[in-house]
Design a protein around this nucleic acid. Structure first.
Lengths: 187, 187
DNA sequence: AAAAACATGTAAGCTGTTACATGATTGG
DNA sequence: CCAATCATGTAACAGCTTACATGTTTTT
């Protein structure tokens, strides 16, 4: 009995891209080359198998589009199952540990929210993000020893980590105002 | 003819930790748990095979230390080959692309410089780092479209990337002053 | 005529992870 | 005596990546 398949991070990226508009594997590759997507390779050996896997598991489907002259292409689009999986991924609650371990994934989620999530949903994400960032910041700050016992290298590494989180808190503030301006206000 | 083995990133992390002081696999695991090292798992299934591979390829060696009562432990230490490999990794020139693709690796290198590199070498690293960061920053800034055609999500993602790099430039400045203060000055 | 762009795939292999397995010693 | 800590491994597999393979159509 095969255990239930759920998309990998690359899988979600592909779902996100196909959710924007139906594309062929080739189109997906071009898009990933022009807008470098996290750390993923856009090589055929990465993309085509990943698409086939999503299709095999019913997250996407495809039709072959014949064009005069040009080679026919297999164009993929999300199924209902695919849309649900993407949406669930986008709306997943954040963990504090995501800030240090999965930051690039969080940013991918933010990016792909554009095509499905409402401003209100994006705001929820940003609020959650800022909240977790603040928690993480206070954890990091509690680790700074007042004594000069620890090395410069260690102290600077920690300082960098703190600045990173701080910067993300400020970024979230900025982003939230951008999405709040369009929000209908309550009396 | 087996093609020449060179350590993976995890391999370099282990070399870095063993360069600080000789340790058993168990000690390495404890250290990685207490000071979370990049994204690597400290599970036995990760650490022990990785250590064996380094040993097989002559980067580290080990002796079994028997203690009264307690179980004997296999304590690893760098060989000359291992020290050279670690040093080469630490001193490798940076690429601009490393800023977006291998930032955590760069920070690991900075961290492990503590135990081998002189202040002057650390400064060289930081200067190179700042230089590449500035280049990357200007590339990113050139991508910000003045038109409002692109989405808020896209614009904010780009803004975040820029802030990140900016922050790292400032961090490098800070770090450099910390290492310059101890440097002997020229007349 | 050749190069570049269009289009899709397979095969081998590296890297690392989780889950499983084992056993000794020490502290409560 | 039971749990926690000490200590080391194996096996199966996930999830990529690189290198190889192939063929068409358009542009130069």
């Amino acid at each position: 009995m095969a255990r239930p398949y759920s998309p990998t991070l690359l899988g979600y990226v592909l779902l996100g891209l196909l959710n924007q508009l139906p594309r062929s594997g080739y189109d997906v590759r071009l898009e990933m080359e022009s807008t470098p997507t996290a750390h993923f390779s856009s090589s055929p050996g990465s993309i085509y198998p990943a698409l086939q896997l999503l299709k095999k598991n019913g997250f996407i489907d495809s039709e072959v589009v014949h064009r005069s002259r040009l080679k026919p292409r297999e164009v993929f689009h999300l199924t209902e199952k695919g849309r649900k999986a993407l949406s669930a991924w986008l709306h997943k609650r954040l963990a504090v540990s995501d800030l240090r371990e999965n930051l690039s994934e969080l940013m991918l989620r933010f990016r792909f929210m554009e095509d499905t999530a409402s401003d209100e949903e994006t705001l929820r994400f940003l609020r959650d993000f800022r909240r977790k960032a603040r928690t993480y910041a206070s954890i990091l700050k509690s680790q700074t020893r007042p004594q000069a016992d620890s090395s410069r290298h260690f102290a600077l590494s920690l300082q960098r980590e703190i600045s990173m989180v701080q910067m993300h808190i400020e970024w979230a503030d900025q982003a939230m105002t951008a999405f709040e301006s369009a929000k209908p206000d309550k009396p």
